[in-house]
Computed example of a mutant assay.
Amino acid sequence: MKPAFNLIPLLTLLLPALAQAADPAPSPATDLAGSLGQMLFGLVVVIALLIACLWAIKRLSQPRNAAGVLKVLGATAVGPRERVVLVETGPKVLVLGVAPGSVRTLHVMEASDFPSEAATNETGAAANGDFSGWFRKALERRRHGS
């Protein structure tokens, strides 16, 4: 056998070890900086995706009717899945019964016949669920009553 053939297996075993010795291991500071940079980049990407999703939700949830033909005046639950809803459409106010799978007109009245919010507040009833106003009036009644 020739001596050159004996050196080839020896060189194939020694070359990876020599290459590893030539490249020094990265220092802990550069490894930490790289990991920190990668983490911050991922955080920025996640926050950017969150902001984009919130913007899309806001954009898609805006009402489609630009003219504002319908206006919901109020709603109240009359059962676990049933509601009575007041809807103003032009000069009319509709009283609608809403249940899963059906919407029925219960009553139709003129908007002028419907009590305004200012008149309702003068009488003491809270038109829009104003708890602070109701609580203030209840305290006044309690003070004057006793």
Rank of each mutant, 00 (worst) to 15 (best):
R59S: 09
A17N: 15
E82G: 02
S116P: 09
A21Q: 12
F114N: 05
S146T: 01
G74W: 02
E88V: 08
N65E: 11
Q62L: 06
P9Q: 09
N121T: 04
E122H: 00
G68Q: 07
N128H: 03
T76Y: 06
M109D: 10
V93G: 01
I47A: 07
N6E: 13
A29F: 01
I57E: 09
G68A: 00
W134L: 10
A21F: 14
P91K: 08
A29V: 14
L106H: 13
V108Y: 12
A25H: 10
S146R: 02
I8F: 15
K137V: 02
D23R: 11
H107G: 05
A126D: 06
A25P: 15
F41W: 15
Q38N: 03
Q38C: 00
N6H: 13
M1E: 09
T30Y: 10
A77N: 08
G74Q: 03
T120I: 03
G90C: 11
P24I: 03
P115S: 00
T123V: 02
L15Q: 12
E117I: 04
L43Y: 13
A56M: 12
A119W: 09
Q38T: 06
A48Y: 15
L139N: 11
A138P: 01
K137S: 04
T76V: 03
D31L: 12
N6F: 10
G124Y: 00
P63K: 06
D113M: 06
A75L: 09
A4C: 14
V45G: 09
Q20G: 02
L50D: 12
G133H: 01
F5Y: 14
A33I: 12
E140K: 02
Q38W: 11
L106S: 04
K92S: 11
R104H: 08
V45A: 10
K92I: 11
K137M: 01
T76W: 04
R81P: 10
A77G: 06
A99K: 01
L73M: 05
R104D: 10
Q20S: 03
C53Q: 12
A119Q: 09
T89D: 12
E88S: 10
A67C: 08
E117F: 00
L73E: 00
F41M: 00
Q20I: 02
L86W: 01
I51G: 03
L43V: 14
V44F: 12
A127R: 00
Q62K: 05
L60P: 13
W55A: 07
L10V: 11
V84E: 01
